[in-house]
Design a protein around this nucleic acid. Structure first.
Length: 158
DNA sequence: GCCAACGTTGGC
DNA sequence: GCCAACGTTGGC
């Protein structure tokens, strides 16, 4: 039996990589994640999983569009690159510490679904939803099928 | 720019 | 293994 499709939310600062950037390149290796929980989530991903593309640290933080997981997790090459900001001297090729997946553009929302509005639906989403839980800074987090459905219903139409 | 929350590092 | 210091995230 095939593994059911799962859902995730991935944060990106639009100043460095936005939904428009993803639309332009089509597919992007999600490099630079240096948090174990976020990494572990990426290691669970399967091609075809749904991704909510979230803009963080910007004037209107929120969900900017949809993407799809395009690969299984594989070692993040930037961890071996001495010139990269993401270089990790403690990681080895024999035992890579950091993983990533490729993420493929699906579509851009007509406008960003603001975090502010998402928070107003905490009842439907559940207080434990990491996106709206106070103090959670996780950049890659799981989304349940019910949460996915709820959030897509909130998608701005214009 | 501020600051709360959290993760990581490193001395002991 | 504890915990203080430090760095980072990310909303506001």
């Amino acid at each position: 039996m095939p593994t059911p499709r799962r859902y995730w939310l991935m944060k990106s600062e639009p100043d460095s990589f936005s939904i428009d950037d993803l639309a332009r390149v089509g597919t992007e290796p999600w490099n630079g994640v240096r948090n174990y929980q976020a990494r572990n989530h990426m290691r669970q991903m399967k091609p075809g999983d749904g991704v909510l593309f979230y803009h963080s640290s910007c004037p209107v933080p929120g969900i900017a569009g949809l993407a799809t997981v395009a690969t299984e997790a594989y070692p993040d090459p930037t961890q071996f690159d001495r010139k990269s900001d993401y270089y990790d001297p403690k990681s080895t090729r024999e035992d890579p510490r950091w993983s990533l997946v490729d993420v493929k553009f699906d579509r851009k929302f007509a406008s960003v679904l603001p975090l502010e509005e998402i928070k107003q639906h905490a009842d439907a989403l559940g207080d434990e939803f990491a996106l709206i839980k106070r103090g959670t800074r996780l950049s890659v987090l799981p989304v349940t099928a019910a949460q996915w459905k709820t959030l897509l219903k909130l998608e701005p139409r214009a």
